[in-house]
Every structure is written in structure tokens, then in C-alpha cells.
């Protein structure tokens, strides 16, 4: 930038003014990041290495890096569960959202806008309330339970709530709009003539879908799965409301450590490990998906 300005500018004062503009524009954002992202991260990393002091809830900085290892081994089951649930929920959301987004993008005609509003409509209602609603839907007096019972698919001793499937369904449901919207965005951008060209070049509808539509919608798939997987892996509301003690996810552990046990170092260590783990997974995923070539 500076080089470009130098090449074209003549007066030094004007040059200085011009080259400052981009930094001035960036400043609010950088300041925000420094204050609300970098500083808390540093605090978080620091808190994680503290050890208990004399009083209750008092911790002294002793740089005990082993805290990280202790936290990880102590909550390894919940870590594993979080990623597994988030993974299955992401697949489930993808399976539901892809046909939905496809239908809205290509087959909805004049109803397109109404359908898009319906996709985001759940956001008008609280996240917690919607999750509690699922407790009703899946509960013993709810429509799902009754129907499955009538079809003899479950026995009267089965519980749908307080179970692993309930947690995963809750996760998939809650993050569905985050999956649907990017998918819709990338499907909608596909030039219909490219699809016609595929048909013209001896590909039937299914082959066209596989060889043209899916590859061209990959940016949406990657964005959608990331926007679902990341919050799902850190979520604790669904496990809390729709799960039982054996479905606790890492978010529940962190929540409990911070607020109940007030073991701040362990909670901080777990938060940091979760963040790093997700970052690594995302990096590998984006590399593998190779979306940069699609642009």
C-alpha cells in the first residue's frame, strides 16, 4: 500500500495523510480485538497455570503447566463425547439442510423469500426456550413418543428425553439455520446454464448433481459444517436440558468448573484446550476440502 502511494504521490504531507488512512480505518477493529480477544486469551492462558491459595476461590500464579494435562485427562471422556456428538449433529444437520437449501434455491419459485424467512424464524425465539420445547416434543406426552409407541418402534419403558439421541437432535436442530443459509448461498449462485451444459454433455440428473452441483456447493458445505460443528462442540445447553449425567459434554464441565466448583484454573485450561483442538480440526478440514480452488 505504502509503495503504491509513494509511487503516485508527490507532496510528502499528502503522502503521509494518505498512508495513514488504512491504519485509521483498521484501528477500531484492532482495538476491539486487542481488548476483547487477545487480552482475555492471555488472561485465560495465565489463569490455567494458577494453583489454589489459602482462601476459598483464591488462586496464585505458580506457572503449573501440568494443569493443562490434568484438565485434559480429567475430562477426556467429555471431550471425546463433545466432538462425537457435534460430528453426528453436523452430519444430521447437513443431511436435513442440503435438500432444504436445494429446494429453496432451485424449486421454490415465488415462495423463495417466505421459505428463507422461515429458516431464520426460530431466531426470534430464545435458544433455551426452543431447546426446552424439544423436551416437550420428545417427552412421554409429546407427539413423537406417542407416534413411535403406536408404531411399536419403541416400548413404553424407553425414554426419548434425557438420552444421547435427544442431545444430538437438539444440537442439529439448534444449528440448522447456520447450515442452511451458507448452503443456500452457494447453491443459489450456481449458474443454471452450467447445469444445462452438464445435461447437454451426457450427464443425467444424478450425475449432474454429483459432478457439478455438489462440487460447486462445496464452499457452502464447508462454511455450513464449520458454523454448525464449532458451536455444537462447545455447547452445554442441549446436554443440560435434553441429556442426562452420562451425556455431559465439555461445555457442561467448563460451566460447572467455573460456576459451581469455582476451579478457575481447570476451567480455563479446558476452555483453552477446546479452542486449540477446534482450531486444529478446522485447519485440517479446510485444507482437505480444498475450497480455495473453488473461487
Amino acid at each position: 500500500m505504502a509503495a503504491v502511494v509513494r509511487a503516485s504521490g508527490t507532496a510528502t504531507s499528502e503522502l503521509k495523510k494518505k498512508s495513514l488512512v488504512p491504519y485509521l480505518l483498521l484501528a477500531p477493529g484492532l482495538l476491539w480485538l486487542a481488548l476483547f480477544f487477545v487480552a482475555p486469551i492471555i488472561t485465560l492462558v495465565g489463569t490455567a497455570t494458577k494453583t489454589p491459595g489459602a482462601g476459598i476461590g483464591e488462586f496464585i500464579q505458580t506457572y503449573r503447566w501440568a494443569n493443562y494435562w490434568d484438565a485434559l485427562t480429567g475430562a477426556s471422556a467429555q471431550f471425546g463425547r463433545s466432538f462425537l456428538y457435534a460430528f453426528i449433529a453436523t452430519l444430521l444437520a447437513l443431511a436435513i439442510a442440503y435438500p432444504l437449501a436445494y429446494g429453496i434455491a432451485f424449486k421454490s419459485g415465488k415462495y423463495k423469500n417466505i421459505l428463507l424467512v422461515l429458516v431464520v424464524a426460530p431466531f426470534f425465539c430464545s435458544f433455551i426456550l426452543r431447546t426446552i420445547a424439544w423436551k416437550q416434543i420428545l417427552g412421554q406426552n409429546g407427539p413423537v413418543y406417542r407416534t413411535l409407541l403406536d408404531l411399536h418402534l419403541i416400548s413404553s419403558t424407553t425414554h426419548l428425553t434425557a438420552s444421547v439421541p435427544a442431545v444430538i437432535i437438539g444440537l442439529a436442530y439448534n444449528f440448522l439455520p447456520f447450515m442452511t443459509l451458507p448452503l443456500y448461498g452457494s447453491l443459489e449462485r450456481i449458474d443454471p446454464r452450467v447445469l444445462e451444459a452438464s445435461g447437454d454433455l451426457y450427464a443425467n440428473a444424478f450425475t449432474t448433481f454429483r459432478k457439478v452441483t455438489v462440487p460447486l456447493s462445496m464452499p457452502g458445505v464447508v462454511a455450513g459444517t464449520l458454523l454448525t460443528f464449532i458451536p455444537a462442540a462447545g455447547d452445554y445447553v442441549n446436554a443440560e436440558i435434553l441429556g442426562n449425567p452420562s451425556t455431559k459434554m465439555i461445555g457442561n464441565v467448563i460451566n460447572a468448573q467455573f460456576l459451581n466448583t469455582q476451579d478457575y484454573p481447570t476451567a480455563a485450561a479446558l476452555s483453552f484446550i477446546l479452542m486449540i483442538a477446534i482450531s486444529i480440526m478446522v485447519m485440517i478440514y479446510v485444507r482437505k476440502a480444498g475450497t480455495e480452488e473453488l473461487v
Partner: peptide, 19 residues
């Protein structure tokens, strides 16, 4: 169907597969 015809098209704006 289009894919069953011995006909190929050069589309306006070409419609090459971008991926």
C-alpha cells in the same frame, strides 16, 4: 432427455464448469 441426444451446445457465455 438432453443427455440422450447426439447434440452438443456451445452456450452463450460458454457455461464452462468453474470447478
Amino acid at each position: 432427455r438432453p443427455y440422450q441426444r447426439p447434440v452438443n451446445t456451445v452456450f452463450q457465455n460458454y457455461a464452462l464448469f468453474p470447478h
